[in-house]
Design a protein around this nucleic acid. Structure first.
Lengths: 216, 216
DNA sequence: GCCTTTCTACCTGTTTTCCGGTAGGCCTAA
DNA sequence: TTAGGCCTACCGGAAAACAGGTAGAAAGGC
């Protein structure tokens, strides 16, 4: 019988012990390591890279989101299965794009967990069906009116204004001045845009702005 | 028992009779009309609008693609189930965003056909699972950008490389690392780009990069 | 040879962005 | 009434971009 070596990272020890208890009856699955922080995880991965990593997104030190590239760098063979309570389609695509193999909600029944682990171990992809469906529908809606600025529920009116001005090459201070708001507020909008649109910097913002037809 | 009234449009009479034969055993489904052309269909819809329309895409007079809006105009209540042999994900999204409720391949088994008819009749959506999956995966890769090697005499080869990487949201330090040059050199290229292209900052660079086709 | 362009590398500053917080007021939906 | 979303405002610190220099090496044309 094949053995799947897994590791678990979650900031709540209770969750970890719960998972370990759930997995115990399944002899083909061996929990090789458990971690409560990103730092500990990265340390542990060096010595014993698991086949599958159960990853929570909300961690004490850094976000699982930023953690994924580091993990992939460290042990490219390890398949990452996101196990979180974040019930957001956008998070799913964000994590998958970063290289995760699956996305599971913490409410999932134990047999689903086992299935998911085996699927990603075999090189497949497991995504919470409900979220996958939502993501798919978003995709259809997105393609429906890619040019229409009114159909981007992701952004508020104010954020779209700020994004437009960023695209017009104004600095944050100039934007604040133009919109009659504080510099801090304008910067806040800018930061929210970067988070919401899942980009790294101004360059990414401009690309999105053009994609959604906000400029040019 | 509820009765589902359906209509079929397909340019091959053989396919139509085959479908009719498949559907005959199911008493809840009544074939109210069959058509071999778009013109005939539009005529027939006026008198007897069906609950569900089985629509082929390749028709003799006009494409089913262009036909859908006309059908929706004529009888908005009718749910359209695309039944075709076109095995292309892009066609699925194309038809769905025009207002179709389902997409089925002609190779589908009869019970699947029945299921799909009932699902769309109930206001749901049925999409060939394989195509749905492909479409979903395309969506995930949506953010990749195909590069284009165009001739911009204003910029040197090295500058174009740097600009491409800036547009890919890399920092100057990362770009330097990728190109095996010093951080200062990379920054120098960045500054030169801003000067040459007469823009104020990164935002302007991205816009130019897109304009000249360096990135999507 | 000389001149130009390009790529390379370095330096010193200043400005801006980026990150991750906190927090109150307002409005709306539950 | 409470919860949530949005806009507003603020803070501190790190990182990156921006601006304006100098300067050597290589390659090519005249």
């Amino acid at each position: 019988m094949r053995i799947i070596n897994i590791a678990i990272v979650d900031d709540h020890p209770l969750i970890i012990s719960g998972l370990v208890a759930i997995l115990r009856p399944y002899n083909q699955i061996v929990v090789g390591g458990t971690y409560t922080s990103a730092a500990g995880l990265l340390e542990g991965l060096k010595s014993t890279p698991p086949d599958v990593l159960l990853l929570d997104i909300l961690l004490p030190d850094i976000s699982g989101k930023e953690l994924v590239p580091a993990i992939r760098e460290l042990c490219p063979e390890t398949r990452i299965l996101v196990l979180t309570s974040l019930d957001m389609p956008s998070m799913v695509s964000s994590m998958l794009r970063r290289g995760c193999s699956g996305y599971l909600l913490k409410g999932a029944p134990s047999h689903t967990l086992i299935d998911a682990i085996e699927i990603v171990f075999d090189g497949g992809q497991y995504i919470e069906p409900k979220l996958k469906e939502q993501l798919f529908q978003n995709f259809l809606k997105f393609k429906e009116h890619p040019k229409n600025q009114m159909v981007i529920p992701e952004l508020t009116q104010r954020e779209k204004e700020v994004l437009t001005l960023i695209a017009a090459e104004y600095t944050t201070r100039e934007i604040a001045s133009k919109l009659f708001i504080s510099y801090y507020t304008a910067e806040n909008h800018r930061n929210n845009l970067i988070q919401k649109l899942d980009v790294k910097n101004t360059a990414g913002l401009i690309k999105v702005a053009i994609q959604i037809g906000l400029i040019k």
